[in-house]
Structure formats: C-alpha cells, structure tokens
Write a protein that binds this DNA or RNA. Structure first.
Length: 875
RNA sequence: GCAGGCAUAGCCCAGCUGGUUAGAGCGCUACGUUGACAUCGUAGAGGUCAUUGGUUCGAUUCCAAUUGUCUGCACCA
C-alpha cells in the first residue's frame, strides 16, 4: 500500500486532479434521458478578481452540482462571464486617461477594439480563479454576455418588446452619473447619508410687497426653477395661485401654481419647482404644463445660460449662489440637516436627476405575471423570507431605464432618420428609412448590462432558437446568488423568462449572505479588509476554503470569515488525511468486500449503521438546501464517531494480525471510509479524490474516480439499531470511567482493576474487555452480577456499575457526596418526567411517540437510580 | 416613514416543521505523547436561550409588544 505523506499538502494535489477531471470530461457527464439538473452561474464581471463572495457562491453551486452528478442526474453547470458595461468601460477609460487619451480621441471603433483586448486579457483571469476553487463547470459551454448568441437574444428581446409596446423612448427624469457620464437605473442608485443644510430663500412676489419663503437642499438648482408650488387647499397662499414671483439672482418671472405635491404641514408650504432636475418637480411640471429649464450640463456644471455661474461645478455653484443670495438679502436662514443622497453604485458619485431622452421598459405588465409565478410557487426562494423582498420590489417598481451612454455593451437596435425623424427598431445591423429610403443612423447608446444578464438562463442555452440544449436543460433547477442581487438580477430573470419562454427560469433560488471580515464588517477596498480567496487557497488549499465557507453557513445569513475558521478547516483536512493514513497502514487486503452481518462485531455494525444513518440525513439536508448542516454532520461523524471511537476500538483488532476479526475490521473500515469520503466529496473534492485513489477498490464495483461514483443513500440493510444502542451503552460507561478518573486526577499510567456489575451480559463480557483495557485505562476487567468490596470508586452508566479500587485516591466522603449529588440530579429528572406523565393533558394530547419517549427515559433514569442507590449503599 | 433580519457559552455561530439533560468550533483550565494526527487525545468550567405578555398539556422554538442591532425600500421643498 502506497503511503501518504504525514501532513496533507493540497498544493501538491489540487491542480493535478483538476486537470485530470477536465481531461476525462467529468464535468459534462452527458446522460441524455436522465433527469436533468441545471445551474447557470451568476456570471462574474470580466473586470473582476475572485473575491470571497464569488468563493462562497461557487462553493455552494459546486456542492450542489457534484451531489446531483453523483446521484446520476444529467447535470449541467453552465459557466460564463459578464461584460459589465459600466464597470469595464470605467476601467478602460481610466487606463486611457493615464495615457492622456479620452474616448472621444479614440472614437467608438478603436475604443471597442481596446475593450475586446481587455476582455481577452482579463476575461480569462476570473475563469482560471474559479477553476482553482474546484468548480466543476462545463467549460465547453462557457458563455459571455456579449458573445454572438447572447447578442442575438438581446436584439430579439428588444424588438419583441418594442413591437408589443413594452419598450418605449421618452423624456423622463433619470438618474445621471456625472462621473460615468451615463444614465443609470433606479436599482443602480445607492442612498447614502450626508450632512447638509436647508437653505431658506425668499422669492419676492411680482406686483406686491411680500415674498414667499421656500427651503431647499439644492440652492444651485434655483437657476432651473420654473414655478413655485403651493397646495391648492392652503389658506395662506391659495389666493396667490396664478400670480408670479421673481426668481432671485436670475430675475425671471415664475408662476405660483397649485399642486398637491406641496404639503400643508411641511416646511413653509411653498416648494420651488425645478422640473428638469428633480423627479417630483418633473411630475408637477407635467401637471401644470411648466417649461423645463435645464441648468446643469452632463458633467454637472452650470450651463452657459447663466453666464455668472457658467462652467462652475455644482458644488462650486452652490457656494457662489448661496453667497449671492445672502448678499442680495434673499437668504433667510440656514438649517443643519442630514439626509440621504443618491449615489452611483459603481463609482459612488452623487447622482444628478436630469431630464433626458432615454429608452425604458414598461414594467407593470411584466411585473404582474412575475409576482404571480412566485406566489404560485413556480419559483421558490430559500429561505422563503426573500420572496417578500421580491414582491415588495416587483409591486412597486417603476419603468426601467435601459439605455446607457456607453460604448461597451449591446448597442440599441434602434435607427433614426436624420431627415424625417422616422424611428425603426430592427435586428438588422443597418437599415434604410422606410419613408426617405436614406441610410438610417443607429442609436449610439448601449443597453444596461442587466438587460443581457436578465436573459442569461436561456440565452446561454441557445434561445431564441429551439436548440437541443434549450430543450434539454431549460428551465434550470437552482440559482445560487446573494441577497444583494435579487432586485438587479433575479427578479429581472424571472419576468424576462416568463415573457419570452413562458416559464420561470429556475425552480429554486438559493440565497446566501455576505462574507464579512472577522469583525463582521463588509469587506471593501476602501477599508482594505478584503481577504483574497486565492491567498487562502495557496496557504490552506481549496478544500479548506470551501469547508470554511460552507460549514455552519445557513441560507440567507451573512457569515464571518476568520483565521480561526480557516484553521479549523485546515485541521479537519488534516484529520481526514491522517485517518486515511491510519486505515491504509493497517490494510493488507487487495480489495474490499463487506462481510455478511453474522461475521461483524458489534462495533462494526455500529459504525456501519451510523454511517448509513448519516448518509440518509446528509441527503435529506442537501435536498433541503441545508448545506451547512449536512457538512457539520459529516464533520462530527468523521471526527468523533469514526476517528475518536471506531478507530480507537479497532486498534486491538489491528494489532491482532492475521485473525479473522482483523480481516473483517479491514473490510469494514475501508468501506466506511470510502462511503464517508463520497459523502464529503461535493464539499471537499480534492482531498477526497486523492485519498480514494489510494484506497483499495470495492470488489466487483471498481470506481474510476470518486467524482463519478454513486452518492451514498440510506440503505435499510445496513441499519443495526440494536448494535447502535449496545455501543452507545459501552461508550457511556467508558466515558464515565474516564470522567471519574479525571476528576480524581488519576493519570492514565495508573491502571485500575475494573469490575462491571450488570444484569445485561449481552452488553458487557469477554468481548468488551479489550475496550476497557485500552480506552478506560484498566488493568483487567471482571464481570459479575454483584460486587462486595470496599474503598472503591463507583461509576454508574450504561445500565451498569463499574467498580474500581483506586486505593488511597478514594476519598470516601467526597465519593459519597458525588454519588448523592448525582442521585439528586437523576431524582429531579424522574420527578420532572413523572409530573409530565401524570399530567392528563400531556398524556392525552401529546403524540404517542413523545409520550413513549418520556416513558423510556423514565425507565432509564429509574434503572440508573437503582444503580446509584446500590453504589451508595456500598460506602 | 414602510418592510425584513438578527439577539443562544468569554468569542464566533448551529439548533429544520414546539417535547433535547440546549450543542459544535475557537478560547480557557487540568491531565496526557515511542508509531494515524500536538494541525492531536481525555476530561472540565462556562448559558434564566434579550425583556414582557400570550397561545399550548408543554415555548429557545409559534404569536404580540418592548429594547438593542443590522439590512433593504421610500421620502426629505
């Protein structure tokens, strides 16, 4: 038997195994006809580097796909990347800036060349990083949101929606990022608390003595004011509706209008209206037919219409205008205020609401069926509470601004005639004006990245064509993603899929939380507290990283990543490794065959039964997406039951070379180890594969790789409840003896005589002696139905009393006290249970199994109480 | 403002549809090493399961309120 190294060294193993798996085509099992299980990857940005969020997301997906693959499903994990228009373009622009170049210098074509070069250079980076994680994606089907197929789908969708009237072009207030120089959707705005002021300003009335006072957080937009609104029911001002005031500093006459937007009980009741730079004011402007006055340029500077401030940045202008207002006697007061300000989710710049001609998706008709589908359970969120988020967003969503003033992305397939203004939307790359027959000009803008991501589950499978893949793998089963991306992506995939394919794109959305740092803070570049998964892999291995991320992690909840966690994971790897080393050192059989039940010892049946039970539970947990729970069970089973007990119990048998019992032990332990490794494989693919490759094969069932072996399932033939009970009793007694010795500070080197008194000869006898000798530090063991002796320590557990003469170490008084306090505890338990059983309500209403359980406990406690009395009487 | 999450051992967290002697890991204490593993073993200390009510035969678990904390969404003239 080839020997394993003493400590596990993942770096020697992982890349080699990954290459082997790839070469053998294991990632794409190709089992047409079998039930399918499909996951599409949330495509990482091509600009991105693998971070802990990706690591968690992909660990969970890989666990699921490996599990289903081992269960025999026709699995597909479809990988790919996202062109990430705004993020990528920003990076390229930034790189160009360093060369002293702007987009305009280069022109669209040259710029796009650079972008594709960028993609070529960096798009592969994240992919190779995913591979380091062990991600078993079908790389032959890798896709890109801007590739030919996805582009085809995007055009198809755009044209269809346009023809249905669900996409329209119009002038609306949109969120404008002055830094990225593009519109962004509502979903892409983050609100941040900022300290600011309320400036109270007087607007003099025309043809009168008085003035109206308004308060604003944005005095610079005063330049764009085209009215003052008051509530039509406001007794203070309603007589003024229809008259005018003078716009301070500008001198323009602006009307006083009546509109519900102005509330009676808020501020002074008067509101300045800037229709071109505020969404609410825009609506007021529409209702009152006010002119739009644009006073800010796309880079948030004052327009040339206001020469005094022209070219000033919005904040500069604010200062200047406040100063001028003050000097002109218009400024009444300044009030401190903290308020939420919209910022660009990409660059953090404060967004500027602006009136702009953009393309929109009409959301209401799309949102309705999407809400219905989830309500009817066609797609299920795990955990369920996230469906509430989803409903809330879907039911309140406004039209989606999809055009972006960027070059890197899907160009909007709309064409304009410069002569007659005709608009045509077509999948063709160019077209002639249907009226003037002149070449039309394509819209220069591109689409929101999320527009193409929304089609990902079906565009990647060939839609709009009825491809074999689409038929075979769509709709998909599970989508795994973080809660931060439900609105951006998940909800849009659902309504898109319903609209174009008539089906929800996936059955289940498994939501995970954020990976935070050890102090619970969000990992961020500015804090510099990010942990690089690749460094973790280098140091501890991918399996350790995966274990640290998966264990104890429950759906939807954030988790902390810490040194302790990754060290615990590394230790577990090492534990598995060494358990395997031990097993192999003791094997001399060429292949493994599970002996018939009658040849098995109690401990063999116990471990087989436990392993089998765990297999059943793990499958159940995995089916319910309780991956963290499943892994924790495997951890406990392997470390506690397999290593701490079964291996220790077997040591005497392994020492007895050549015996029949030794051979049985070899077969059982090799079998259980293999089963356990299989159960663990989806979580920790590398170490399990490496060890399995060194283990002898099962007779007649040789497996090429653990990756393509069958996942264990509960097998009634391997369930031995009586032997489980028997072992548990034995373990209880051994534990109790160790416990007693430890309490009395008896070193392991001091061996004691043990007399086991029990009326259960089936539990204790010749066969158990070796265990007491080895695990309970006994010199020898005798079994009896009664015991007469003095100066002995008495241990009550597992339906037996153990007597150990420990000579001078025994303090009889102390011993008696201990036994009595133990007795008291047991008596309390008995009282509690008896009271419960005497309760008419409990007996009649509680389920029979629970009542039976309580009765069984009572019997057990009474038995223990009897033993304790017996022991106390001896003192 | 609206909605939602979380509150369990010194720390970090499990505990799935109510019935457990409330659990792991880390840390701490004591003991232990010539052959699987010190990246280890044995044992121990440590919890009124945030508070208050309610439902129930029975509540850490379900409901309500309160407090603290975090997150979405909205508004902010």
């Amino acid at each position: 038997m080839k020997e394993l190294e003493k400590t596990y060294d993942p770096s020697q193993i992982e890349d080699r195994l990954y290459a082997e798996w790839t070469a053998r085509g294991y990632f794409a099992p190709n089992r047409p006809g079998k039930p399918t299980y499909t996951i599409v990857i949330p495509p990482p940005n091509i600009t991105g580097q693998l971070h802990m969020g990706h690591a968690l997301d992909n660990t969970l997906q890989d666990i699921l796909i490996r599990y289903k693959r081992m269960q025999g499903y026709d699995t597909l994990w479809l990988p790919g990347t996202d062109h990430a228009s705004i993020a990528t373009e920003a990076k390229i622009v930034e790189a160009m800036r360093k060369e002293g170049l702007t987009k305009e210098d280069l022109g669209r074509e040259k710029f796009l060349e650079r972008a594709w070069d960028w993609r070529k250079k960096y798009g592969g980076r994240i992919v190779s990083q995913l591979k380091k994680m062990g991600s078993s994606c079908d790389w032959d089907r890798e896709r890109f949101t801007l590739d030919e197929g996805c582009s085809k789908a995007v055009k198809e969708v755009f044209v269809r929606l346009y023809e249905k009237g669900l996409i329209y072009r119009g002038e609306r207030i949109i969120n404008w990022c002055p830094h990225c120089r593009t519109s962004i959707s509502n979903a892409e705005v983050n609100y941040e608390e900022q300290k600011s002021h309320f400036w109270h300003i007087r607007y003099p009335l025309v043809g009168g003595e008085g003035y109206l006072e308004v308060a604003t957080t944005r005095p610079e937009t005063l330049l764009g004011d085209t009215a003052i609104a008051v509530n039509p029911a406001d007794e203070r001002y309603k007589h003024l509706i229809g008259s005018y005031c003078v716009l301070p500093l500008v001198g323009r006459r602006i009307p006083i209008v009546g509109d519900e937007h102005a509330q009676l009980d808020k501020g002074t009741g008067c509101v300045k209206i800037t229709p071109a730079h505020d969404p609410n004011d825009f609506e007021v402007g529409r209702r009152c037919r006010l002119p739009m006055e644009v006073c800010l340029t796309p880079d948030a500077k004052i327009t040339d219409n206001y020469p005094k401030y022209a070219g000033m940045d919005r904040y500069e202008a604010r200062k200047a205008i406040v100063k001028d207002l003050e000097e002109g006697g218009y400024l009444v007061s300044i009030e401190d205020l903290t308020h939420e300000v919209g910022t660009c989710y990409r660059c953090g710049t404060t967004i500027e609401p602006m009136i702009s001609l953009q393309w929109f998706v009409r959301m209401e008709p799309l949102a309705k069926p999407a809400v219905e589908a989830v309500r009817e359970g066609k797609t299920r969120f795990v955990p369920d509470r996230f469906s509430k988020n989803y409903f809330h967003w879907m039911e309140n969503t406004q039209d989606w601004c999809i055009s972006r003033q960027l070059w890197w992305g899907h160009r909007i397939p709309a064409f304009y005639c410069d002569d007659c203004g005709e608009v045509k939307v077509t999948k063709e790359p160019s077209c002639l004006c249907p009226k003037c027959k002149k070449e039309m000009r394509q819209d220069p803008d591109t689409l929101d990245t999320w527009f193409s991501s929304a089609l990902w589950p079906f565009s990647t499978l060939g839609w709009p064509d009825e491809t074999e893949d689409l038929k075979r793998f769509y709709p998909t089963q599970t989508l795994v993603t973080g809660y931060d991306i439900i609105t951006f992506w998940v909800s849009r995939m659902i309504f898109s899929a319903l609209e174009y394919t008539g089906q929800t794109p996936f059955d289940t959305v498994l939501i995970h939380g954020l990976v935070r740092d050890a102090q619970g803070r969000k990992m961020s570049k500015s804090l510099g507290n990010g942990i690089d998964p690749l460094e973790i892999i280098d140091k501890y291995g991918a399996d350790a990283l995966r274990f640290a991320l998966a264990t104890g992690n429950s759906p939807g909840n954030d988790m902390r990543f810490s040194d302790e966690k990754i060290e615990a994971a590394r230790n577990f790897n090492n534990k598995i490794w060494n358990a395997a080393r031990f097993v192999m050192m003791n094997l001399d059989i060429g292949q493994v065959e599970l002996p018939p039940a009658e040849k098995l010892e109690t401990e063999d049946k116990w471990i087989l039964s436990r392993c089998n039970a765990i297999a059943g539970e793990v499958c159940e947990n995995l089916d319910k997406y309780e991956l963290g729970v499943a892994l924790a069970k495997l951890y406990d089973f392997l470390w506690s039951e397999f290593c701490d007990w079964y291996i220790e119990l077997l040591k005497p048998r392994f020492a007895d070379k050549g015996s029949a019992s030794n051979v049985v032990a070899q077969n059982v332990i090799a079998y259980v180890l293999r089963q356990t490794l299989k159960l663990l494989h989806p979580f920790m693919p590398f170490i399990t594969e490496e060890i399995c490759a060194h283990l002898p094969q099962m007779k007649g069932k040789a497996e090429e790789s653990i990756m393509v072996s069958d996942y264990p399932a509960f097998d009634p033939a391997l369930s031995f409840p009586e032997d489980e009970e028997r072992m548990e009793k034995l373990i209880d007694l051994i534990r109790a003896i160790r416990n007693r010795r430890a309490e009395m500070n008896v070193p392991p080197s001091k061996k004691a005589h043990l007399t086991v008194v029990s009326d259960r000869p089936d539990l204790y006898g010749e066969k158990t002696t070796k265990f007491f000798l080895k695990l309970a530090y006994c010199a020898d063991v005798t079994y009896a139905s009664s015991f007469e002796g003095e100066n002995t320590v008495q241990v009550v557990a597992g339906s037996a009393v153990g007597y150990m003469p420990l000579g001078d170490l025994v303090d009889l008084e102390k011993e008696k006290k201990r036994l009595e306090s133990e007795k008291e505890r047991v008596e309390n338990e008995i009282r509690r249970i008896e009271a419960k059983l005497a309760n008419e309500g409990f007996v009649s209403k509680a389920p029979a199994a629970v009542v039976e359980g309580e009765r069984a406990k009572l019997v057990k406690y009474k038995e223990t109480l009897g033993k304790l009395n017996e022991a106390i009487a001896k003192i």
